[in-house]
Write a protein that binds this DNA or RNA. Structure first.
Lengths: 108, 108
DNA sequence: TATTTGCGTAAGCAAATGCTTACATATATA
DNA sequence: TATATATGTAAGCATTTGCTTACGCAAATA
C-alpha cells in the first residue's frame, strides 16, 4: 500500500477534501455532507490523508475535527520547482522552435 | 480513463522518466534501459505522459525522441501554492499550539 | 532483398483503488 | 438507562492500474 503525498493528491475527491478544510477544520460528517459518496468512503479518504500527514485530527467528544496540515505538500512543490526554469525558458530557445518546424510531420 | 497531471505524476516510475529526460531528450529504448521493467511498460507510461502533455515526441527515423514539456506541471504548482501561506504561517498561531497541548490525548 | 532494430499495441493477469452495505463502538442526550 | 449521533472498519465488488508476453510494422542495415 503505497502512501505518499503524490498519490494522496492524485485523487480529485481528496483534493476537494483538502480544499474544504484548508481554511476551517470540519468534523467528518460535515465533510461528507459536501460529497455525493458515502460517509465511509470519505472516512477512508481521510484515513489516507492522515497517513501521509496532510490532515490532523482533533478529538472533541464524539466528533473528530479534521484540520489541514499541508507542510507535506512542500515535497511535491520541491519536485516541481526543480523543473520550473525548464518550462519557463520560452526565449533563447530558437533551436527548439526550428526543430519543431522541421519535424512537423503529422504523428501517425 | 482519467488522465490528468496529478495522476500522471503520482506514479514514481513516471516521475523518474520525467526526471531522466527533463534536461536531455532520449529515445524510448534509451529511457527503458534505465528501468527494471520491460520496454512495453515504459512505452505505456510514455503514452500517459504524452496524453497529458508532459512529453513531446519527435520522430527521427525509426526512433522517437521524448522531450519533457513540463508547462502542465504549473497546474499542480498553482493548486499547491494556494495553500503555501497556510503551512508557512508558523508564528502568530499560538492558539493552535495551545489547542494541541490541551488535546494531546493519545489517539488510540 | 533478408535481417535487425525501434517501437506500438493487444491480451491477459495480479494487485491496487474506490466504492458500497453492514456492523461495532464510544459519546451525547432524552 | 435507553436511544441517538459520530465515527471506524470489515467484507465484498467493479474498475483501474501496472505489468508481462506475444505479436505487428516501419525504418535501418547487411
Amino acid at each position: 500500500m503505497r502512501r505518499d503525498v503524490f498519490q494522496a493528491i492524485a485523487d480529485p475527491t481528496r483534493r476537494e477534501i483538502i480544499n474544504l478544510i484548508a481554511f476551517n477544520p470540519l468534523n467528518l460528517n460535515a465533510i461528507a455532507d459536501n460529497f455525493e459518496v458515502s460517509r465511509p468512503a470519505i472516512s477512508q479518504h481521510i484515513k489516507i490523508l492522515i497517513a501521509c500527514g496532510l490532515i490532523n485530527v482533533k478529538k472533541q467528544g464524539r466528533e473528530r475535527y479534521c484540520e489541514a496540515s499541508l507542510q507535506q505538500l512542500n515535497e511535491v512543490s520541491i519536485w516541481i520547482e526543480k523543473y520550473r526554469q525548464l518550462w519557463e525558458v520560452k526565449f533563447n530557445r530558437l533551436d527548439d522552435l526550428l526543430d519543431k518546424m522541421k519535424n512537423d510531420t503529422p504523428e501517425q
